[in-house]
Design a protein around this nucleic acid. Sequence first.
DNA 1: CGGGTTAATATGTATATACATAATTACCGT
DNA 2: ACGGTAATTATGTATATACATATTAACCCG
Lengths: 228, 228
Amino acid sequence: MIRGWEELRADLLARIRAREWPPGGLVPGEEQLAHDYGVARATVNRALQALAEAGVVERRKRAGTRVAALPVRKARLDIPVIRREVEARGQVYSHVVLAQQVVALPAGAAARMGLAAGSPAVWLETLHRADGQPFAHETRWLNLAALPDPVPDFGTVSANEWLVANLPFVSGDMSFAAEAAGPAEARALEIAEGTPLMVIERLTQGLSGPITFVRLCHPPGHRVVLSL
Amino acid sequence: MIRGWEELRADLLARIRAREWPPGGLVPGEEQLAHDYGVARATVNRALQALAEAGVVERRKRAGTRVAALPVRKARLDIPVIRREVEARGQVYSHVVLAQQVVALPAGAAARMGLAAGSPAVWLETLHRADGQPFAHETRWLNLAALPDPVPDFGTVSANEWLVANLPFVSGDMSFAAEAAGPAEARALEIAEGTPLMVIERLTQGLSGPITFVRLCHPPGHRVVLSL
DNA sequence: CGGGTTAATATGTATATACATAATTACCGT
DNA sequence: ACGGTAATTATGTATATACATATTAACCCG
């Protein structure tokens, strides 16, 4: 006896997992399911909405509800503030600004950020530490037009954290790669050149344009966990 | 003039981004917003539901709706089927099974998978190629109890792909790290030992227990892209 | 048989109403 | 001032009804 949309969602999910309706196959319509389960059509709609958002089914107006042909397999990452990440490991966080200057955005970075070459930007290089050991080497370009005037003091609160509190992003992209440590990273992270690094790059956009392009390098032993 | 829940959601999001209600602050209640916008309370509820699911606000019965104290910053990864990943790059996919045998699960893998040591499992080693070049070296443990009998032929369709179509997971975890290539990976991927590898590990659970624990190693140049 | 047009229909949404439930507030007693 | 209890209330949900919209199916004509 179904008590509400959540139970209905779970029951439908179980039936889908049991292959009652195969991938790509048509699930009975809302009216039919409402009749079968003895609930309102709106309740069925609510349950299917949740399944659609989970990627289990695909729905289109008038076209019916189909089991996703290939189950969408999504993993989620909660992007951590580095200080919180370090402290969550029970370690003491600290950071030091290695370099900071207002510059004209070079062509490569400009293209990456979708800004004109020569746009005023802040170039920032930061080392984040955990218990005094190098945790991450961060280099970033900040779109000067997105920052308040005067530019905040990133020696006090790292840009990594300041941006979260003051310039939330609304879109962007992020990527991971394994790369060999170059001279700058090796020096900052106190490791040998060529050591494998987890390199995380991220571009974020605010409501009025690009905010920042950041590159984070973590030494070996760093693992990024996503949930399924 | 708000036309529906989607426009309302966008308007509320813009107001939140503009700090009309600060992080942690209380958003006006549904009845108030319904009155202010001239829509039904259910419409407000629908818009706020979407914002809550996006992590922009937090809602509890009777407690009101608050702007998330720290904007949740989530990134999403669509987990690709390797063949599709290769083909999406315009390359020709192929794979070869380097090793496959039914074994007793050793203690380490058993612990990782939440199974008893000695449980029957399939050990599988696969090399995935793109245009004939090594693309990924995959080693995996498959819980024999989760597989049909007889065990499928992974030489024809890789386990990576077979599982998607036949054993969808319902939960699990996934992680990324940069590691130096060991002898087995170096040999399979035709690179020098010590070369940085993007190492992806994933454990998936089905409705009736653990399915597989897989470790994927990609040579340099492989970039995993997430969307924000 | 194929293509174009029209009608039908399944999902998508908005609203009003009623009820459920968890959290907050108010009140009272010690 | 603090703790406990009861009342209030803001979110959560279910239902019925009406309307919107995109897609599918039916029909007609060349």
